[in-house]
Amino acid sequence: MLKLLFDRLLTTIPALIGVIVVSFLLTRVLPGDTAAYFAGPAATPQAIEQVRKQLGLDRPLPEQFEHYVLDLAKGNLGQSLTTGQPVLSDIKARLPASAELTLFGLILALLIAVPLGVAAAVKQGSTLDHACRAIATAGVSLPVFFTGLLLVYFFYFILQWSPAPLGRLDVFASAPNEVTGFYLIDSLIARDGETFRASLAQILLPGITLAIFSLAPIARITRASMLSVLSSEFVRTARASGLSARMVVVTYAFRNAMLPVVTTLGMVFSFLLGANVLVEKVFAWPGIGSYAVEALIASDFAPVQGFVLTMAILYIVLNLLIDIAYRLIDPRMRSAT
């Protein structure tokens, strides 16, 4: 197991180097002049040149790259010009917000989509199956910002059930002591019921928005995978042996049907983490997606590079976790390597 981990990590090194080089080059070929943007509305060409010099953008590309890599080795991702903070501290502060929201949305989606998919497969062709298809199609065809705005409109503006869409906590509440960076968990650790309720209330709408969007792939894959497993021979044997329907579906079929679902889950998670930019914008969520987009609009290189790098690392870790999950679910995988 350890050897496997080590081998897998080793193969990620070329990928990481590639990401560093490409993200550096891509940000430089983007149109837009950082210096002109940050020299302000009343800048003279001289002022712009001065800013360019201060930012080190007047030096040749190889030299800029060398500086970037050296800083990176020291764990320094550079300075964001849009927020004025070191990129590392920005990412540290914002990644948990995005991760919490994404995980929350994903768990919500799982809780609904997996039972729905299983039920649809077991009762193929029933009303439930059609409902599953309808929900999945609707979920994936509604753009997230639209669902988000719609939910805000109904639950905040009209019904007033939900608190103001102002990010992770109400303006007058204070954040729990940071342990994991996830407010829901941190407030539980601090045994602070009020903060827990407040942050739950805040995360509910954006979480549901994300869940609606990610329901579709999970439900569809669960259904398809369950269908193929249910029609396989071992299930028939189990049925013929007189095992209860519950035993057949839950113990035998479900576990075997989980492999493709886990794979999809990994993909959906990484996709959501990057794609929840719009949800973050709608709910003023201080996450990493909106951070990267704002930086991109201002041609602010460092945060964009930092974001791409963080995402690359996350993908690598995620893939590793999925591999490990495979082994836990499917004993055959353990002996394969």
Partner: peptide, 19 residues
């Protein structure tokens, strides 16, 4: 307290709701 709310629609909703 100066809060950054990127969505113009939400800024308006916050104001009209009195928050």
């Amino acid at each position: 307290i100066w809060r950054i709310v990127p969505s113009a629609g939400n800024r308006r909703a916050l104001l009209e709701r009195g928050d």
